[in-house]
């Protein structure tokens, strides 16, 4: 698989990262280097080997169904560029 400039531009848009047109060839090249490495990994035969999800054997940590958090509207909103009446206020987004 090879990434061209259009694909690089699309990925940047999906990730909401602004990339100038003249930076696209370099970005596409970087993607290709990364994908090349992944392709190299794909050559390893992992038939019958379970994916490793943890370095040490661990069970997913669970919590009980108790309300232990919240009630901190001021803190939640403290980094918001704009907040009104307890809401985050953002530029209008309508479908």
């Amino acid at each position: 698989m090879s990434i061209d400039e259009n694909t690089a531009a699309r990925v940047a848009k999906l990730a909401r990262i602004k990339v100038e047109d003249n930076a696209l060839p370099a970005l596409a090249a970087e993607f290709n280097t990364i994908l090349g490495f992944i392709e190299q990994l794909n050559e390893v035969d992992v038939e019958g080997v379970a994916p490793m999800t943890s370095v040490t054997p661990q069970r997913l940590k669970r919590r009980v169904d108790d309300v232990t958090d919240g009630g901190q509207q001021d803190k939640v909103l403290s980094n918001a560029p704009d907040a009104r009446e307890g809401f985050f206020a953002v530029p209008k987004v309508v479908e």
Partner: peptide, 22 residues
């Protein structure tokens, strides 16, 4: 009572942004 991955309440109709964990 609480959310899928946090201890904040699921209660409907609360003050905006009051049932929010970090």
């Amino acid at each position: 009572n609480a959310k899928l991955f946090s201890g904040a309440s699921t209660q409907f109709g609360a003050e905006p942004n009051s049932n929010v964990a970090f």
